Computed example of a mutant assay.
Amino acid sequence: MNAVENTIFNYFEYSTCWPVIDEDIRRCLMRKFPYGILYTIEDNFILILAVMHCSREPGYWKDRVK
């Protein structure tokens, strides 16, 4: 299992604990790498918008939200 999958499976059990960074978008930071997983909590699922490097083009994912 790679680091992204590990973060998703282990941390999203507590999906509401991660901070809201824009409207209803939350960011979960990875432990060993400078990446964050941006997601929103929908009625029956968690929608992952991006796995982003935390110091490159911070707002590129905003086009994905509609």
Rank of each mutant, 00 (worst) to 15 (best):
N2R: 01
E5Y: 05
E5M: 05
N6T: 08
T7L: 08
F9H: 12
N10Y: 04
N10R: 10
N10I: 02
Y11K: 10
F12R: 02
E13A: 13
Y14R: 14
Y14L: 12
T16S: 11
T16L: 10
C17D: 11
W18G: 01
W18K: 06
P19N: 10
I21S: 04
I21C: 08
E23L: 05
E23Y: 07
E23V: 09
E23R: 14
D24T: 15
I25S: 04
I25Q: 05
R26A: 06
R26F: 06
R27F: 03
C28G: 01
L29F: 11
R31V: 04
K32S: 13
F33M: 10
G36I: 00
G36A: 06
G36P: 00
G36H: 02
I37Q: 01
L38A: 00
L38Q: 00
L38V: 01
Y39L: 09
Y39H: 02
I41E: 10
E42V: 07
E42N: 11
E42P: 01
D43A: 12
D43P: 01
N44R: 09
F45P: 01
F45Y: 09
F45R: 14
F45V: 09
I48C: 07
I48D: 05
I48V: 14
L49D: 00
A50K: 09
M52R: 13
M52C: 10
H53W: 04
C54T: 13
C54L: 15
C54R: 07
C54V: 15
S55I: 09
R56T: 14
R56K: 14
P58M: 05
G59Q: 15
G59N: 14
W61S: 00
D63E: 09
R64I: 12
R64T: 13
V65M: 03
K66R: 15
